[in-house]
Design a protein around this nucleic acid. Structure first.
Lengths: 148, 148
DNA sequence: ATTGTTGCAAATATTTTGCATCAAT
DNA sequence: ATTGATGCAAAATATTTGCAACAAT
């Protein structure tokens, strides 16, 4: 049977890794594809996607959000944060809200750093939703969960 | 000429707004589409997308991230935050980093709220990147900017 | 009449998958 | 030989757009 931990550092994979490592502009998959093509004209976009996914899964690079493949909408328009459940993928309102001390501190200090170009921020928590905290997550786990 | 501020509260728009307002599960566009179809069998998905976009633009509902349509990758794997420029769309490393006092406070307090299911968090700043802060943004603005 | 809005279909954009082939163990 | 990896093309997913028809002012 196939071993999910075994892998080979192929030429393609190495080139992709190097390109991401040396490029500080947070490139997209197709940008990396273009750069990799410069060195390996036959490389395919699918290989790039597969390897980025794999390298990120092993922590060799970072995959920046989104995470979420689909847009979501919220009828509650006052400021509040959300928690994405790493088991079932549900998106729920965070029990921590703006009144919380640490966030108040963060928000206050953000107002004082406008010289740094910051106008607003997005903060989202990742963890276990209420349901997955009470039921055993393993019995509940949705295979369609989005990776964190 | 067309006035971008003028709009009509059509039946479709009202149904969509109501559905988002009363649904607390942060529905996706196609979920809202399905609900709206229950009441208006002829409504189209395009109408739903157009109206969600429009309602969010006017602040009647919230559009949750992503914002970013495309995945990005980062070769720098130590913890650090990013800033998305609201003018040019560039994604740059934030000048504020984990050492910053407020974030240290946030991170510390997050460790103490594990009962709330929070395991990690995603934080991203929105504002003006270094380049757009120094040049006049209006001369620099990229039409391809992603809405915040 | 003007102009905002709709439904439908087609287009776009991004990412994933099936599959035969290739390559390393 | 076994199994991981590739290239290619097709499929899947999510969203946007062109356009003729409709509806409110």
């Amino acid at each position: 049977m196939r071993d999910r931990n075994k892998f080979r550092m192929t030429h393609q994979r190495m080139v992709i890794l190097e390109e991401v490592k040396k490029d500080h502009s947070h490139p997209t998959a197709d940008e990396i594809f273009a750069r990799a093509r410069g060195k390996m004209p036959k490389i395919s976009l699918a290989t790039v996607y597969r390897n980025l996914e794999m390298l990120a899964g092993r922590g060799l690079i970072r995959k920046l959000e989104p995470g979420r493949p689909q847009m979501r909408f919220d009828g509650e328009i006052h400021d509040h944060y959300h928690l994405t459940c790493m088991y079932c993928g549900r998106l729920e309102d965070s029990v921590i809200d703006s009144a919380d001390q640490a966030l108040a501190g963060l928000q206050h200090s953000l107002k004082n750093v406008n010289e740094s170009g910051i106008i607003s921020h997005r903060l989202e928590f990742v963890g276990l939703c209420k349901k997955c905290r009470t039921t055993k997550p393993s019995e509940e786990k949705d295979e369609n969960v989005s990776q964190i």
